[in-house]
Computed example of a mutant assay.
Amino acid sequence: MKAKLKYPIFSFAPKGNMIYVFRTEKLYTTTNTKLLMNRKNYIVVDSTGTKFVETGANKVKWLGIYGYCTRYQGRAMTIEYEYKDDPEVFPLEQLQALIADRYPKTCWFKEECWNSADEFRQTILNCKTFEEVADILMPKLRLSFWQRIEEGFIRIAFIILSVMFLYYVVWQIIQKFWQWFTG
């Protein structure tokens, strides 16, 4: 069965501790070959409170040049998931209890700067919507106008320096070849 999910969605393994949050379909349907091999029967809960169980995934297309991108380990691809035919209701309270129990056991918990597991549990249990829970687990990255401009200038400067370096190297090779050719 193919399902139309309402984002943000929560994805987790039946026995694992890590709970992933995806805000857009592009992020959810992009993976690599190494991660796809380890992904079996994941449970997906969308923001309407519907629980889907993944039964499989089909490759739609390769990303980048035949799947080789710089930011992924393994070949990157876009996939399409298939789910069991009977979606279930998954209330917010059940998701909150699951997150409060599993997430503090992950290796990322200390890096997220939570002082204690009790503080985290209390914050999760005080949320009223799925979107609030998603904001706690995966805050939206918001760059200011000036930060985006600065990032753009850094990229442009790097590209200009790279082109200048390549031009210089190619010019040196051409000169060496010409000297060798003319004797």
Rank of each mutant, 00 (worst) to 15 (best):
M1A: 09
M1K: 06
P8Q: 08
P14N: 08
G16S: 13
G16F: 11
M18V: 14
Y20G: 07
F22I: 07
R23S: 10
E25F: 07
L27D: 14
T30E: 05
K34R: 15
L35V: 10
M37N: 15
N38I: 09
K40Q: 15
K40W: 12
D46V: 02
S47Q: 07
G49Q: 04
K51R: 14
K51D: 03
F52V: 00
F52H: 05
V53A: 11
V53H: 11
A57D: 02
A57K: 10
N58R: 15
N58D: 10
W62Y: 15
W62R: 07
L63S: 03
G67S: 06
C69W: 00
T70H: 11
Y72A: 05
G74M: 03
G74W: 00
T78H: 05
I79W: 03
E80I: 04
Y83M: 05
V89K: 13
P91L: 12
L95Q: 03
L95I: 06
L95W: 02
A97Y: 04
L98W: 04
I99S: 00
A100C: 08
C107G: 13
E112R: 03
W114D: 02
S116H: 07
S116F: 08
D118S: 08
E119L: 07
E119P: 01
F120R: 06
Q122V: 11
T123E: 02
T123Q: 04
I124Q: 01
L125D: 13
C127E: 04
K128S: 13
D135V: 01
I136V: 14
M138G: 02
M138L: 13
P139K: 04
R148Q: 14
R148P: 02
R148N: 13
G152L: 11
F153C: 12
I154W: 10
A157L: 12
A157Q: 13
F158N: 11
F158K: 15
I160S: 04
I160P: 02
L161H: 03
L161M: 12
M164N: 10
M164P: 04
L166R: 02
Y167T: 09
Y167I: 05
V169H: 02
W171P: 00
W178A: 10
W178C: 10
W180V: 05
G183H: 12
